[in-house]
Amino acid sequence: MAVDFPNEIKNLRTTMASVREVLDLEKLKKQIVDLEEQSAAPDLWDDPDAAQKITSALSRANAEKDRVENMDAAIDDLEVLVEMGTEENDADTLAEAERELKKLQKAVGELEVRTLLNGEFDEREAVVTIRAGAGGVDAADFAEMLMRMYLRWAERHGYPTKVMDTSYAEEAGLKSVTFEVNVPYAFGNLSVEAGTHRLVRISPFDNQGRRQTSFAAVEVVPLIETTDTIEIPENELKIDVFRSSGPGGQSVNTTDSAVRMTHIPTGTVVSMQNEKSQIQNRAAALRVMQSRLLLLKKQEEDAQKKELAGDIKASWGDQMRSYVLHPYQMVKDLRTEYEVGNTSGVFDGDIDGFMEAGIRWKRAAARGAE
């Protein structure tokens, strides 16, 4: 069936018009001029933290502007290519145009999804915590599989990550893990991953080779920033110190450097053991605690608890995504109905399709509630 190039190009231009409207290119260009003036100040690096924020914001703004302008130019080039192929009745040129069209449809779709990330915290970096749920050793192993999946996703995109705390299970896998994804819009993208994940497979830990269902919970919160005002009185915090441990409970530290911090009024608990000293672990734990309390505060203010984080139980009846490895292979999101059969690819970090579908679903649900 021949491709309807005029209609497809028209659709691309319509989407890009919507993208430009949301991004407000003129406002973005003014922002770039302002940031360039700030970055040219002779005393810029007197405050390294502030300087880093200014230069990073300038880099992001320029990248956003270039991405839109380059996409518009690419659509123009595609139109010229189609005209050449049509006028000369050149099948090779039209085949090349079809390949370019597919690339552009994917790229414009990704850019459109970015415009949907306009929530209060969507631009933030993210703190992700994965906890093993029901299912014993299989659940602990599943938690470790999910950690690798998200870290591989970040690696595929060149996003820096930092593992903050790891609690190993006795036999295999993880009881829990907490890590940061340090890139703008990490929270916007990863927030749709929050919830209960379910794994169905032949258990490698069952000597009778029976099928096992196990669960893991994924929590995503936006990373605290210095401009956020979350003060926690000392008397609201209980702090315990202990020795860091490795796989199977093996001690890997001879000093009490690990920190467990409990916020007494809410019962929120944060553990941190991957830094070298107790002081560093305490600072990292406080940062994550502030991030969680910030989100909790906003959830209470806006009555959006389910939308932002939800009540994640990691057991039957709560799952938002199923990973089935037996008797067939499929990963399916139960909210969006998005599914793929390449389970190994998913566990290797190929999850952009799930995130895009989740972001569109979340946005549609928010519009429906307005």
Rank of each mutant, 00 (worst) to 15 (best):
Y150K: 06
E26F: 12
V200H: 01
Y328A: 00
D34K: 14
R152D: 03
A186R: 04
A61C: 05
Q208L: 13
T14W: 05
V270P: 02
E100I: 11
Q329P: 00
D49P: 03
V324A: 05
G267R: 02
V259S: 01
E337Y: 11
A95H: 10
T213S: 02
A169V: 04
I359K: 00
A50N: 12
L293F: 02
E120D: 11
Q38T: 08
V181Y: 00
D72M: 13
L293M: 03
A186V: 03
A314T: 06
N253D: 15
W316G: 10
T255H: 12
V108S: 00
A41W: 10
M330P: 03
K10E: 15
S214G: 01
L104H: 12
L111M: 11
A107S: 15
G109T: 02
G188Q: 00
G349D: 10
S176M: 03
N7H: 13
L28S: 03
E219K: 02
L94C: 07
L117K: 01
S277N: 05
I232Y: 10
T161P: 00
D49R: 07
V113I: 14
K305V: 04
E69W: 04
I239P: 13
L293C: 02
S315T: 14
E88Q: 11
N235L: 11
D92W: 05
M330H: 01
L44F: 03
L25W: 09
G135C: 06
N235Y: 09
L78W: 14
Q319D: 09
R124F: 08
R198F: 01
N281V: 11
S176T: 10
K162S: 13
D43L: 09
T262Q: 05
V288G: 00
A284C: 10
E339K: 07
E8R: 15
D47V: 07
E370W: 04
R124D: 03
R13W: 05
K332Y: 02
A216M: 02
Q250R: 12
T229W: 10
I75M: 14
A314N: 04
D49H: 11
M145S: 05
F5S: 01
D318C: 06
T129Q: 05
V324T: 06
R363Y: 14
R335G: 04
E144P: 10
D72W: 11
I9D: 02
I239T: 08
V259E: 00
R20E: 14
A172K: 08
S203M: 00
N7V: 14
N7I: 12
H263W: 00
F242T: 07
S245I: 10
V346A: 06
Q52E: 14
E64W: 10
V113F: 12
R114M: 13
E21A: 12
M164D: 13
A283V: 11
V241L: 11
A364H: 10
R292Q: 07
N182C: 11
K27G: 15
K102T: 15
M149E: 04
N11T: 13
E337L: 11
L286Y: 12
E275P: 06
L174F: 05
R287M: 13
L28Q: 02
